[in-house]
């Protein structure tokens, strides 16, 4: 029992520290060749990166490969990492570049899979089956509409809405200008609206 309390305490203390500071320490340790510093970074970001890759590539095996390749590249280029940036922004940039390249080459012959094949079903306290089914159906629709957007627009909308990056950060990550990101975001939201209207109707007529 006391171990559990200790673990919870350590987690709370770790969260209390600001993330960039923790990351900076871990990156410094990685640069010195301490492979033990890799695990906290991997544990913290592997699932977030997986979901970004999955929304981009729409195949769970491709997404697993993308996350693996991203961390391999991170380890290879850790010396060049600018510690004034956030680690996740940098890792996500590597992941997006990999996914865009993969989509451009279309090297994968794997089939697209649906969201339900990958996501765990909702559960927990106050679990309402009907509400869960409705939420699942809504997510499936959103996922399908997102997949109908062209990769540049899908990338922008995933990074902005799901990952919460600012337009400036997205411009830095995708190697474009702030104005281009704003234009793509405007186009992406407008196209999403049009496809949603066409497929499922909506509030606006």
């Amino acid at each position: 029992m006391w171990r559990r309390f200790l673990t919870v305490g350590v987690c709370v203390m770790a969260d209390a520290l600001t993330t960039p500071e923790v990351e900076r320490v871990l990156v410094e340790r990685l640069r010195r060749g301490d492979r033990g510093a890799f695990n906290p970074l991997f544990e913290r970001y592997r699932e977030r990166l997986f979901w970004v890759a999955f929304h981009m590539l729409r195949n769970e095996q491709d997404a697993l490969d993308a996350v693996q390749e991203t961390f391999v590249r991170v380890l290879r280029a850790i010396e060049r990492f600018d510690t004034s940036r956030r680690f996740y922004t940098w890792a996500c940039q590597i992941l997006i570049n990999y996914c865009v390249d993969r989509l451009r080459r279309r090297s994968s012959s794997r089939e697209n899979v649906s969201l339900e094949d990958v996501a765990a079903p909702d559960a927990g306290s106050g679990f309402d089956p009907e509400e869960a089914v409705a939420r699942q159906e809504e997510r499936r629709r959103v996922f399908d509409v997102l997949q109908k957007l062209q990769p540049p627009y899908r990338t922008v909308i995933i990074l902005r809405e799901l990952e919460g990056f600012s337009c400036k950060e997205i411009a830095e990550m995708t190697g474009t200008t702030h104005a281009t990101v704003r234009w793509r975001l405007h186009r992406a939201r407008t196209m999403f609206r049009e496809i949603w209207e066409k497929e499922y109707g909506g509030l606006y007529r």
């Binding site: 765990a120 997510r139 959103v142 909308i157 799901l162 609206r193």
Partner: peptide, 17 residues
């Protein structure tokens, strides 16, 4: 309607694997 769309897309946040 755009605000509704944003809320819809944000429902994909926090998915569990």
């Amino acid at each position: 309607a755009f605000c509704e769309d944003r809320a819809r897309v944000e429902s994909l946040r926090g998915l569990r694997l």
